[in-house]
Write a protein that binds this DNA or RNA. Structure first.
Lengths: 345, 345
DNA sequence: TTGTATGCGTTATCAT
DNA sequence: ATGATAACGCATACAA
């Protein structure tokens, strides 16, 4: 009954101060771990009072005063896509280790949702932001940056922003994979990608694929199919088209990401088309099940967890005051040969 | 140069008030959408000023004053496990629709990490919490609850807490699956589960499995193997043991979750053991790749995204003031027959 | 319909 | 080594 404050049962810095018989300034110093300014005795008393009262410092008040909320924002294209959740896991780990918390937003590559997310996070005064952006809200991101919020881009580059980027070395990985396919002797290779908007990761992979081929082919006999997930009909048409074009040829499908791979494999299974007997397949990205599906899918394994970790580390450095010029960090992927591809002859 | 405040370039409610030529109270009313208290004219002026200044309300200050942070916490066992990320996606969607933000924590089923997460979130004054708890921090959760933070449990029940729970109807789903296996005529069935700690979801499945069998078998010829992911050696020993015990019998493996399923399938593949010719398999949980692996894995599909959505809806209701007694909500799973199981004869 | 004054829980700037 | 006091940005009771 003696506690009729707004916050039922929630002690604040004053209560602790009273109980420990010191001023709240002293408590504040304790909270900031300025132990050299405290006598051993008061420190003990404060510790006791905190335990006794179940005191939990209020991060909102701290943030309001100190201009650091202790929150990092992360905006992802798809929070249920293993590629992104693996990044998320890496980021979360580093984040928690540094005593910051993570606010997570999902936006389904929708610029409107992305905008909402950015505004919400700004409202919460995030200390920093990690984002796989659609590229359609550069103005807002620039505003954030000007307001002093550090930003790290993942998966998609936005050179206009001049902020750090961490991602896979798409070009190198695509060169390796495509060269491998050429060495295998495929007559026809089709690259399936989600729509080639201006997202750097998709474009880099597709254009590299084409440029490697154009170096080695005398005439263009390969294809790029742009299909979004959810467009099952278009995917099926594309596959039918390719199967028709490559009839009797030694052919291979190159899936631009794991979701497409899954859809493609399901379709091929339904059509009764054997992998790799009738058609081969490779994937950019190596989901956990790639090794176990069919004869094992040849895949490009991306260092997703590292991307998340490094992005967060970079971000925390920036927040801590590193103002050096922004960097592009591209981590190397690993090419894993499995049973879904063959050598000719 | 005229703006030499701490917050570079960040306008506050006073700046907006000045620019709009009103008091900050009026701005505050605008922010709280009490439009009936504002003349159309002032409202327009305020809107103009906000746009002009790129004003973003400070949620920390709001939260400090109003005792609502606008943040929901969610603590998950494994933020990269599709089961949980699917829940996360559902929760995030509802959360954002209601203007709240989501703070996500990963704890790897480690009670120490879980404790840290709870404390961190409490420090940020979350309005509510969704958690798949280890069950080893009930004291902290109770404290949270007493402090007025609503809690919704997912996946694992903790009756002592008397808070809402949302999850799969494990018992019904297990009965259906096990009965199906008995109907198929399997002589031997082995249930593989992660260690049977006091986590309700694991226990419910395992005990139901046993009780259904004991009703239909005259003597106990089936097995429960407790294996944690990461313990590849123990998993292999267990499988070898079961293969040996069931030699020449019509046998089936029941995997308690998708991760175990994957490990088991990999092991069987490595041993060259055909599914379902040599051994059958079922899984509690239906990962996206279950349909496409081998001949298709017979599986129990859980309504994960709904679990997340409903958990968040329930939580938001509680936060909005619903103080009715806590409920257990168990969503029905769907049993999907595929090629990995057979009928005898 | 609008304004004034006070407080939310903390940190920072002075003091002592 | 410790305290008193003024912010931080907003919401609210009370006035007008």
């Amino acid at each position: 009954m003696k506690n009729d404050k707004q916050n039922i049962n929630k002690a604040n810095i004053n209560d602790v101060a009273k109980m420990a018989g010191v001023s709240k300034t002293t408590i504040s110093r304790f909270l900031s771990e300025q132990y050299d300014l405290l006598s051993v005795d008061t420190r003990k008393r404060i510790e006791g009072a905190i335990k006794e009262l179940n005191y939990r410092p209020n991060r909102l008040a701290r943030g309001l005063k100190g201009n650091r909320s202790g929150v990092i924002g992360i905006i992802l294209s798809d929070i249920s896509n293993p590629y992104f959740t693996s990044i998320l896991k890496g980021a979360e780990e580093v984040c928690r280790l540094h005593g910051e918390n993570l606010m997570v937003c999902n936006m389904d590559d929708d610029p409107i949702k992305e905008k909402e997310c950015i505004l919400m996070l700004q409202t919460h005064r995030i200390d920093g932001l990690i984002i796989s952006s659609t590229g359609h809200n550069n103005d807002l991101l620039l505003e954030l940056k000007k307001a002093g919020v550090s930003i790290v881009l993942i998966d998609r580059k936005l050179p206009e922003l001049e902020v750090d980027f961490i991602g896979t070395n798409n070009i190198k990985a695509t060169i390796e994979a495509t060269t491998f396919l050429l060495d295998c002797g495929y007559d026809r290779i089709a690259y399936f990608t989600r729509p080639l908007t201006n997202l750097s990761s998709r474009r880099e992979r597709a254009t590299t694929f084409l440029s490697v081929l154009s170096e080695h082919r005398e005439q263009n006999v390969d294809y790029i199919y742009e299909v979004d997930i959810g467009q099952s009909d278009i995917l099926e048409q594309s596959i039918d088209h390719f199967l028709h074009q490559s009839e009797g040829q030694f052919a291979c499908i190159f899936a631009g990401n794991a979701m497409l791979l899954l859809k493609i494999v399901i379709l091929l299974q339904r059509k009764g088309i054997q992998i790799p007997e009738y058609i081969s397949i490779v994937c950019f990205d190596d989901p956990e099940w790639a090794a176990v599906i069919q004869c094992g899918i040849t895949a490009i394994s991306q260092p997703t967890q590292s991307i998340g970790r490094i992005a967060m580390e970079k971000l925390l450095k920036r927040i801590a005051g590193d103002h050096s010029t922004s960097e592009n960090t591209e981590l190397e992927a690993e090419f894993i040969k499995r049973g879904s591809t063959l050598k000719a002859n």
